[in-house]
């Protein structure tokens, strides 16, 4: 019997780690991986909630499936962007690309 709070704390920890990774790392690919980690952290909490609240039925599971779908789509597009970015700037270093300024 595992209290739901454990899952939530785990989720929070993983999310925080992902967040720190996004901020600390310079490699765009690693940053992207950290984003995936943050999503997984959220997925855990969703499933844990789904198991503790009966009224919502399969909402948690369904959400997780959609998130995984979106994550897959995101990975496809995001990696495409990274490829194109690397082709243009010859770098995938987050600290050398300031295109958002324009």
């Amino acid at each position: 019997m595992i209290p739901v709070a454990w899952y939530l704390i785990l989720s929070g920890v993983l999310f925080a780690v992902g967040l720190a990774g996004v901020l600390v790392r310079r490699n765009v690919l690693v940053i992207f991986m950290c984003v995936e980690l943050m999503m997984n952290a959220v997925n855990i909490s969703l499933v844990a909630f789904a198991r503790s609240f009966t009224g919502v039925r399969f909402a948690g599971d369904a959400f997780v499936i959609f998130i995984i779908t979106v994550a897959a789509a995101e990975a496809a597009v995001g990696l495409a962007i990274i490829v194109s970015m690397a082709r243009q700037n010859d770098s995938i270093d987050a600290d050398q690309i300031d295109l958002l300024k324009d």
Binding site: M1, P3, V4, I9, G12, V13, A48, S52
Partner: peptide, 24 residues
């Protein structure tokens, strides 16, 4: 952020000893 999550979890009904856990 983690601290905030912990605060929320502990202050809410999902406290470690309050929810009595969950098992199918």
């Amino acid at each position: 952020f983690l601290a905030e999550v912990l605060v929320v979890v502990f202050a809410s009904g999902f406290a470690l000893n309050g929810g009595k856990g969950f098992a199918p």
